[in-house]
């Protein structure tokens, strides 16, 4: 166990959505939450700049959205459950979003997921 002043060892490739991220990302997550309403999704598509301005996206958030840069959105406080709603507007699913973050192509990312079924075989082998 760690004391409150001690930070646990970071997890590689992992950005915990904590209070600091939640505070930093409030605007972009609020915009994404609004996409639960179809009319808002259309309003974003009709005028992306205007829609982002309405939600007062911070410059790093606006930049990351403009570049469709998922890791940039996360660095700017975006939470993946909310960003998934934005991704949906562009017709992107979680494999597409995975590809965008890992540098793999979408077929490579899907193949990587499928290949992990080998973990089960290895466990079965190890346990006889």
């Amino acid at each position: 166990m760690t004391t409150p002043t001690e930070r646990p060892e970071p997890i590689p490739g992992t950005h915990l959505f904590d209070g600091e991220a939640a505070a930093k990302g409030f605007e972009i997550n609020a915009m994404c939450y609004s996409f639960n309403d179809a009319a808002n999704r259309q309003a974003f598509l009709d005028d992306e700049d205007g829609y982002c301005a309405k939600f007062k996206l911070t410059p790093p958030q606006r930049d990351a959205v403009a570049k469709r840069d998922v890791l940039g959105m996360i660095a700017a406080g975006g939470n993946i459950y909310y960003l998934a709603k934005l991704a949906g507007i562009f017709g992107l699913n979680v494999q597409d979003v995975g590809s965008m973050q890992t540098g793999l192509t979408v077929p490579e990312f899907k193949a990587m997921l499928l290949a992990q079924a080998d973990q089960i075989k290895q466990l079965e082998k190890a346990n006889g």
Partner: peptide, 11 residues
């Protein structure tokens, strides 16, 4: 789902 470790699974 998120980060460079997206796709992580641990059977």
């Amino acid at each position: 789902l998120d980060g460079e470790r997206a796709g992580f699974i641990n059977a």
